[in-house]
Amino acid sequence: MSAETILFFVLAAAALGGAVNLIAQTHPIHSALSLIVVMVALAGIYLLLGAELLAAVQIIVYAGAIMVLFVFTIMLLNAGAEERTAISRAATWLGLPFAVILTVVLGWSISLSQAPTYAGPGVAMARASGQLSQLLFTSYMFPFELTSILILVAILGAVVLAKRDF
């Protein structure tokens, strides 16, 4: 087994373990920490795939900025451990079957897929930062600008909500 394969399994185990732990933990801070583990493990997998820029952005934006805000909010509100409640009826009758179906469909489509498949033009070369920006500002110009407008609207909405007098 090559070093890459071992690293992949270690990172995948960390990501899965973090994801399971995120749900199993009762305290919000512990859940947030598990989510950070998932993010960092995913960044490691991106690195193994050669997508260095994506890995760095994943850590800077998700693990560094968004999760810091999560942790900050949990600390500020001083949220305590959540209480265990009996599992709801909707979760039993709808959630569990859907989880099983989703797992089966995902496993089936992964087993059918041929390695590696690419979603659109030039995705394979979008590894270096220069080529990525080239793609963003030519082929994918419209979705890119649309996303920035969406984010701008969200920021404005947050400001309006924060400024409102209750």
Partner: peptide
Amino acid sequence: ELNISLLVVFAITALSVYGVALAGW
């Protein structure tokens, strides 16, 4: 030696807030 070393520095800087924040909490 990486070709994105500047981003790596910022990634690690972005994570370093956790040490202080978690210690306080």
